[in-house]
Structure formats: structure tokens, C-alpha cells
């Protein structure tokens, strides 16, 4: 069986340094001979291409998703039932005619079921976004990214397609390094499912700890082995203690602690990964150390690492259905 191991960088909270860390990890791992594909699974705010300095794509494919309703004017009697039933208030009256605001409609079908004239039709294969591929980032690995159009549903389907594209590009045994979106929603769930290892990034703030606990719940659900990187660890000693306490209690290994460092935003402005733009900066050095640990302690025998740190028994989070 072809083995392609997914490693996901996730955090719950946004802005804690996922993409910065992912780009350094990808560059350093590739430098050490690890065969990998980087995948940006945050179509709402795709930043990995920016931190890697990728400006042009080898391919841009449309991503289709969902359907949008429209009203056939020749059949419509302007009775207004669609406007009454639409759960999203997407039906508007313009020049005394009922029309559907295509930016609001999510294609739920309610209006078409209620319309006595059967005047509601649908546009299928709505172009909701794009999936982009860069075969060589210049750092020894390909990048798959995606964008979603404002207002279009961003589902786990897009993440699934991004990951599948990455698997095709990997063409055989290797690793897929996934930069997950913030949050714990559908896209993040889709990033974590099938993954073996999650690098969780947190900063020493109460908000980040709260979100760390939420993302950790999902890694337990999906039987993913978690590891922690604390970013900007020196900005709040009390908060750091809380995070390290949590990691200790929950048996989450700490891969490294990155100091606060103003070269990080500066590197982002240059369009180069931190370790390339400012290799001597304290944050870059600390992130390179994390990459070394990932290479030497995790990837060298990922099964061993996985069996040590994965949840010992299934701990599914199951919402109640009445």
C-alpha cells in the first residue's frame, strides 16, 4: 500500500503563526531530503503561498460547489411565496419583480418546493473558487493552494480536493504538510481526518489556550498524535505556564518554543520564509530546531512516534441528536 502520511499544522486560534511555521518546516524538511508536498487548507485566507513567495501558479483549476436558484420571469406570477419562505431572505423585489440575490442564496431548494408556478430553477456547477498548483516552489517541494470566492460555501470538500491533489503530486511514498485554517469547523475537520500527526501552534494567551483545548479535542476524536509548538512564548510567563501545564497533563509533547521576534513580520514582507530571509534571527533558529526535531524524532520512524503519542483509546466527540 502506498504510504502518504499527512501532518497537519493547526491551532484553533488564528494569527498564532501556523503559516510562518509551516513554511519554515516545509523548507527545512525538504532541505533534509524529506519528500513532501505542502498544502494550504485555508481557502478563506490562503497565506502559505505568500510566506513562501509563490506569485505565479503552474495551474489554476476552477472549484465547483453548490447551486444557486433563479426565478424564470416568464413563469413567475409575483405571488411572493418564495420571499416568505426563503430562510436566508435571499429573495428581493427589484422594479416590482421578485429576484434572487445570488450572493445570499445557498441553494437550499426551499423556494422551489414552495413555488406554485414551478418558476424556480437552479444554476449548478457554480464556480466557488480555485485550486492552484505550483510544481516547484524553489525550495524543493510543490505547493497546492486554494481560494474561495466571498460568500460561497467553504466546505470540507474543497480541503478534500486540495489534499487529493497533493497526494497525486506526491506520486508515491512521502509526506503531506497541511497548513490548516483557524477554527474547528468543517474545513479543519477535513484537514484532520486521515492525518497521523498534528503540530499544534499556541501562544501564551488565554484565547489561544482556550482554542488549543478545542483543537486538541478534535485531534483526540480523529486519533491524531498531537505535538505542541509555543510561539511568542516569552510575551506572557503566566500564560506560558498554563499552556505547558495543559500539555503536560494531556501528554502532548512540546517540540519547541519560539521567542517573540520582529523579523517575523519583516520576513513576511520580503516574500521569503523566515529561515531564508533572516536565518540568524532567534525565531528562525528556534523554528529550524523544531524542524530538526520533526525530521529526527518524528519522521525518521513516524509509526513509532504515532503509537507513542496517539490517543490510547478512541475518544470521539459525538454531538447529541434528539
Amino acid at each position: 500500500m502506498v504510504e502518504q502520511v499527512e501532518i497537519v499544522v493547526a491551532s484553533g486560534k488564528g494569527g498564532v503563526g501556523k503559516s510562518t511555521l509551516t513554511s519554515v518546516l516545509a523548507v527545512e524538511l525538504a532541505k533534509r531530503g524529506v519528500k513532501l508536498v505542502a498544502a494550504d487548507a485555508d481557502a478563506e485566507a490562503p497565506n502559505l503561498s505568500i510566506t513562501l513567495g509563490v506569485r505565479e501558479w503552474d495551474s489554476v483549476e476552477p472549484y465547483y460547489e453548490g447551486r444557486i436558484a433563479y426565478i424564470r420571469e416568464d413563469l413567475c406570477t409575483q405571488c411572493g411565496i418564495c420571499k416568505e419562505v426563503c430562510p436566508l431572505d435571499a429573495v428581493e423585489v427589484v422594479d416590482e419583480k421578485h429576484v434572487i440575490n445570488q450572493w445570499i442564496c445557498e441553494g437550499c431548494l426551499t423556494c422551489s418546493l414552495a413555488c406554485p408556478e414551478k418558476a424556480i430553477r437552479f444554476i449548478f456547477r457554480v464556480e466557488a473558487g480555485s485550486i492552484m498548483v505550483k510544481r516547484e516552489t524553489g525550495y524543493g517541494f510543490p505547493l497546492v493552494s486554494s481560494t474561495i470566492r466571498p460568500g460561497r460555501p467553504n466546505s470540507g470538500k474543497l480541503v478534500t480536493e486540495v489534499k487529493n491533489k497533493a497526494k497525486t503530486l506526491l506520486a508515491g511514498v512521502g509526506f503531506i504538510l497541511v497548513d490548516a485554517a483557524a477554527g474547528i469547523g468543517c474545513q479543519v475537520i477535513s484537514s484532520l481526518t486521515g492525518a497521523k500527526i498534528a503540530v499544534l501552534v499556541a501562544e501564551p494567551t488565554p484565547a489561544s489556550l482556550s482554542d488549543l483545548k478545542r483543537i486538541h479535542l478534535l485531534t483526540r476524536h480523529f486519533m491524531v498524535a498531537p505535538a505542541l509548538v509555543v510561539n511568542k512564548y516569552d510575551i506572557n510567563p503566566e500564560g506560558l505556564e498554563d499552556i505547558l501545564d495543559y500539555a503536560g497533563r494531556e501528554d502532548i509533547p512540546v517540540l519547541g518554543m519560539i521567542p517573540y521576534d520582529d523579523t517575523v513580520p519583516k520576513a513576511a514582507s520580503t516574500g521569503k520564509p523566515l529561515n531564508i530571509a533572516y536565518p540568524e534571527s532567534p525565531a528562525a533558529k528556534a523554528m529550524v530546531e523544531v524542524a530538526e526535531k520533526v525530521a529526527e524524532e518524528i519522521l525518521v520512524d513516524w509509526r513509532k512516534w504515532y503509537s507513542r503519542y496517539r490517543p490510547k483509546r478512541p475518544a470521539p466527540y459525538i454531538p447529541r441528536i434528539k
Binding site: T193, M223, P314, P316, Y317, I318, I321
Partner: peptide
């Protein structure tokens, strides 16, 4: 198979389908 997502897991429970987590095999 692999762990189903939270909602899917709830649906399988509701349907009385027993979940056994297995990955990486035929």
C-alpha cells in the same frame, strides 16, 4: 474504517451502527 467526523459519528450511533476504527489496511 477511519474515525468518522462528529456529525457522522452521531448519525451512525443513531442508526445503531457500531463503529470500529481501523486504518492503513485492505
Amino acid at each position: 474504517g477511519p474515525t468518522p467526523g462528529p456529525n457522522a459519528y452521531a448519525a451512525l450511533n443513531y442508526l445503531g451502527i457500531k463503529v470500529v476504527t481501523v486504518t492503513g489496511v485492505s
